[in-house]
Design a binder for these strands. Structure first.
Lengths: 190, 190
DNA sequence: CAGATTTGCCAACGAGCGTTGACTAATTTG
DNA sequence: CAAATTAGTCAACGCTCGTTGGCAAATCTG
């Protein structure tokens, strides 16, 4: 009992290696096309360990594809920079470190996996909708949030998942300016 | 030789039933999660027939997920109604009959299937890019087309694939107006 | 209406999947 | 340093997948 399973130094390193491998593979290939055997191979250990550490493939996916958007309070932002603030926030998160906070991972799988799709809908309802609601009249909040989501998810889709060349080539400041103006209009209701 | 294989009346009906079943299932579940057995069951025939008629699962998918966007010539449209024209065009196609012309089918699979992703990139390059190029200065064409794609594919993704409730609930005329304004700005470069 | 052909079903294959349990080797700690 | 406990490997399971070949029955044509 002094050494609980999975808390020894070596185990912690292995656990981390599995998580990293899973994040990368899920993000690149989606849930269905990523195999436990692939994850094991990339992490340098036996596939059986993946299951022993995380219980099941789906449990591992759930753990790894759990984006926390950490949206700013749009009510406290200068009203006419809401759009740019939001776009910059997402780009920083997505462009950044491993897996962009789990969003590309989730987005790729959400298109063909019901569980992943449901989770994305939850995240939208719990995080995006309230944030956008604070930027305009309450009665139009769902429509405004829906339009915002269509543009932001479309950006993530074309840039990180489909990798359409002209979208990948877009400089960050141009995205912030152009897409920011769109989000501004959608979020505030003009 | 008088009766080539697959040209008898009954065969034509079966062929059609398989195509319809495949379109529906590929659109709902994507390439990986749709099984040949499912397609057979929905078409009311043995799974083996699916292969005998179309050669392989992938060949059937290729045949069924081949959207032709039939984009209008944007150079010939009144310059300040380019956005609304484009959005209306896509909505009519997507909302319409079986499978929305194959785009939702392709989009759902493109997120996790490399072949489907490559096809979508091709369609973008061969159809969207030239159409958008005609609506503004040539040197900014790729960037403008990229932005247009990010918004239009985002709309298709959230409305037909992810089915985010507020996006599904959006009335068509509101989409044409709001998203149309965005596309207008992107496509023409203001 | 009869003969020829094709449609469709059945059973089975080989491969790959997630997952399990038993065994060996490594590592941690008193 | 040695006993204990864990990390890791190995082989195998049950299942599902796409695909194939052979056989029965429905269907079309002269």
């Amino acid at each position: 009992m002094t050494r609980p399973r999975g808390s020894t130094p070596k185990a912690i390193r292995t656990r981390q290696a599995i998580e990293d491998a899973a994040r990368k593979l899920f993000a690149d290939n989606g849930f269905e096309r990523t195999t436990v055997r692939d994850i094991g191979a990339r992490a340098g250990i036996d596939p059986a360990m993946v299951i022993r550490y995380f219980g099941s493939k789906e449990a591992l996916f759930t753990l790894v594809a759990m984006p926390d958007l950490r949206l700013p309070d749009l009510g406290a932002v200068a009203p006419d920079s809401v759009g740019e603030t939001l776009v910059r926030h997402f780009l920083l998160q997505w462009e950044g470190e491993q897996g962009g906070g789990g969003m590309p991972v989730l987005l790729r799988s959400a298109a063909s996996n019901d569980k992943a799709g449901a989770r994305l809908r939850d995240i939208f309802r719990a995080q995006v909708l309230p944030a956008v609601a604070a930027a305009g009249p309450p009665e139009t909040a769902p429509a405004r949030a829906g339009l915002v989501a269509s543009q932001l998810l479309g950006l993530a889709l074309t840039r990180y998942v489909l990798k359409l060349p002209p979208v990948v080539a877009l400089p960050l400041d141009l995205i912030v300016r152009e897409v920011g103006a769109t989000i501004q209009r959608y979020a505030t209701g003009r």
